[in-house]
Design a protein around this nucleic acid. Structure first.
Lengths: 132, 132
DNA sequence: CGGCATCCGTTCCGATACTG
DNA sequence: CAGTATCGGAACGGATGCCG
């Protein structure tokens, strides 16, 4: 990196305890909430990363209408998805991953993979602790 | 992958809507909670990924004694950190990242880097939405 | 179909006080 | 020093009903 260039990355040294911590926290509470990650994953698997409301509702088991709306609004506010309303009857609304949202897929997949590879170890550790 | 070999990874196709979703959710609520990520980052930066209670308390601004204890216990239960008590007066307790915990650093860093690279875009998207 | 408004139980988490 | 115990406000999220 060039000298004097403003570093837009957060170095590992400054993750905790800096003002950047607020950014980390805000994104973690966004993608760490109950449904966001499933919503993003679901969208990423549809053609054009695009799907309508009812489609998402079917794809994600257990999600309520309320939480689907709420979560989509949050993702839209953060620029991760777009919302397009088609003025028809009955109404149709389509959601699509933005480029910003797509850029999140790789780090998220890394996390998903970690769970795939290590979940059994976590479960084992839990049962060991819980037995006491 | 060999035929008949049990796949321990979750494929992207099965992330949502499978029983594996529960594993994803549980790990997300663990590292997505208010303090875990800072705790893991803090530990990762100490020599030997090892630090005592009061050291962590100083390193992480704003954390209460209660949440520090609670979060450490959760991480310990999941096998991500160890807890060692030294029978001295005054008492000393040291926490250390396990190998399992260390293996989480890479995917977590990927997420932290994403925030570093894209946080300004998120903020911009937010203000654009909020202005309406 | 794709919402929104309301209610309400549960969980989270900070503050405070106390302890071996 | 490194906790534990208790309280209370706030936020999360499910259920339900209504609506253009």
């Amino acid at each position: 990196m060039k000298k004097g260039m403003k570093n837009k990355n957060f170095s590992p040294e400054t993750v905790c305890g800096s003002e950047d911590a607020a950014a980390i926290r805000e994104m973690m509470t966004r993608i760490g909430d109950k449904w966001s990650i499933f919503l993003i994953c679901s969208l990423s698997k549809t053609p054009n990363q695009r799907a309508r409301f009812s489609e998402l509702e079917r794809t994600i088991p257990g999600i309520s209408q309320r939480m689907l709306t709420t979560t989509l609004r949050h993702l839209e506010r953060d620029g991760l998805v777009t919302r397009e309303v088609f003025p028809e009857v009955p109404p149709r609304v389509e959601y699509e991953l933005t480029d910003l949202g797509r850029s999140l897929l790789l780090p998220m997949q890394a996390l998903v993979d970690w769970v795939g590879n290590h979940w059994s170890a976590v479960k084992k550790a839990r049962s060991k602790v819980d037995d006491k």
